[in-house]
């Protein structure tokens, strides 16, 4: 790709009754159906289901983790939209 890759992505993690994350991050790891997906800025557009697992995100070295029960991810080069069902204790 000739155009410059974005340095960060805007991550939104949204549950039915709560917006858990709304910030710029450098990396995101999502529990896909067949294993974890690592997303870096500039990822090609992807729509996918999410399975049960741990969603982690952040700037290199310091990752925050959120347990989720599944959901959908809508991924763009500079944006990651995640709709999830949170695990019981998180909600």
């Amino acid at each position: 790709m000739s155009q410059d890759l974005p340095e960060t992505m805007h991550l939104k993690v949204i549950g039915p009754r709560k917006m858990a994350v709304d910030e710029k991050v450098k990396e995101v790891y999502l529990p896909g159906l067949d294993g974890y997906l690592g997303i870096l800025p500039g990822h090609r557009p992807l729509n996918t289901f999410l399975g049960k697992g741990e969603l982690s995100f952040g700037v290199k070295g310091s990752l925050q983790r959120i347990p989720i029960e599944g959901g959908y991810a809508h991924i763009f080069p500079d944006q990651v939209l995640v709709f999830v069902q949170f695990s019981e204790h998180e909600a």
């Binding site: 090609r44 557009p45 992807l46 729509n47 959908y72």
Partner: peptide, 14 residues
């Protein structure tokens, strides 16, 4: 971007 997205598992399924 007008890059068509990937679908996992498939468009219809999602």
């Amino acid at each position: 971007d007008s890059l068509p997205p990937d679908w996992d598992p498939s468009r219809v399924c999602l």
